[in-house]
Structures are given as C-alpha cells and as structure tokens.
Design a protein around this nucleic acid. Structure first.
Lengths: 105, 105
DNA sequence: ATAGAATATGTCAATTTTGACATAATGTCA
DNA sequence: TGACATTATGTCAAAATTGACATATTCTAT
C-alpha cells in the first residue's frame, strides 16, 4: 500500500467523502496541506485526551462544548474548524511549541 | 516598556479592544496563546504578501476574497479565523514546515 | 499640494461553525 | 449474556465568519 493510498483511506473513512473533497489525489497542494493539517491536529487532540485519561464527556466539559462535538473533532469531521481544534489543544495544555510540532509532521 | 505592555499596545491598537478581550493581562494562558498565535500568523501573512510584492487587491484575487478581508487579516481583526489565515498562508505557497515555524515564535 | 494607488474601517446578507440534543453503535466488565 | 459507560452520527437553531460593497484614511509619487 502506497503512502497516498493510506492517506486516502484515512480520509475516506471519515467525513471527507471522496465526492465531497473531490479525489484526494487531485487536490491542489494547499488543499491537501490544509486537510492533512487538520488530520494531524485531530489526531493530536485524541492523543492528548487519552494521555490525560479523560472521556469525551469530561473533555467536553472542560472545553464548554459537547461530547458530540468532541467526537467530531476526533473524527476529523468537515464541520470542525481549525480554530476549534487549536483552541481545544491549547485548552488541554498543549504549548505553542508542541502545537507547532504537531503541525509539522 | 515591558514585553507585556508592548503586546498589549499591539492588541489594543487593532480590533482587540481592551473591553472586548477583557484585560490582556487577565487572559488565561490558552486565551493569550490563541491570540498571540493569530497575531503571528497575521504578521507572517503580511510579510509573505510583501515579499511577493503583491497589493492586497492582488492577493485577494488569488484567494478569491476581497481587499477588505485581506486588510482585516493583516490587522488581526477579531472577525478573522485561524482557518482563513492558515488557508491563506498555504495559498501563498507557505509550506507546512514554514507554517509550524511561524506558529512557534 | 494634489492625484491616484494602496490600505483601513464599517456594514451586512449569505454561508459556515457551534453547542446541544436524540439516538445509534461500540466497548467493557462482571 | 446484559447492564453501563463511552463514542459515533444526524439534525438544528444560534452564533460566528465570510466576501462584498461603500467609503475613509494613509501612502507615494510628481
């Protein structure tokens, strides 16, 4: 399985249906970068939450959000903004440095 | 002039009126981090545009946005999202690596 | 000083994102 | 198995963000 196929599968498995975001392989570089960026943050967020042994309900309370929105953040749902992901990571205590790290990989 | 005073002035001079974002010095660490983050991206954006010798009108065309919105991005207006800033930077050709760099400083 | 370019600011309807809710699906453990 | 916790998915009204427009202000030449 190539790297591109892996990424594609990862996206398709979530809200980013093939038809919605067009074909992943056809995305312009910046579109692709944006989506991958969100994916990275989404994964970082779940990781942070799990490291802290918190349920989605508990995290939601901290963020003054809801369990369903937290689930969507972690599912990389298209309705979730970068703003929300970044604010949430910061709220979980992630430093700006770690954020930068999460963004670049 | 302390560092905090400098930052405060920078924020107050723009849309982030003292009453709106409360007192800068009273912000929680994550609120402060979020605002500073946007400020960094906003500055990076202007820098990118100037390096490319583009007017706001020209950049707006590339981004399929408007001059006024570009001005607001650079003014770090509260109505501008992280999403917009990040998408715009990517559209100007900034790599994910450089983005991470811009975020951490 | 004055024209014209560039940038800033205010407003608004349309679009997007939000928390919340209901409910379904999955996981866990006795 | 079955109760119970956790996570996922769909929907929606409220809130936030958007591009666009008008207009004001600032900058840059001559």
């Amino acid at each position: 399985m190539t790297m591109q196929q892996a990424k594609r599968k990862k996206l398709e498995s979530k809200g980013w249906k093939t038809g919605t975001v067009k074909e992943f392989l056809n995305l312009t570089p910046e579109e692709a970068a944006y989506i991958e960026l969100k994916l990275s943050l989404s994964e970082s967020f779940r990781q942070q939450r799990r490291n802290k042994q918190l349920s989605q309900v508990e995290v939601a309370k901290r963020l003054k959000s809801s369990q369903s929105r937290v689930a969507k953040m972690e599912a990389n749902d298209p309705s979730v903004s970068l703003d929300l992901l970044v604010k949430s990571l910061l709220a979980l205590g992630v430093s700006r440095k770690d954020l930068a790290k999460a963004i670049y990989e």
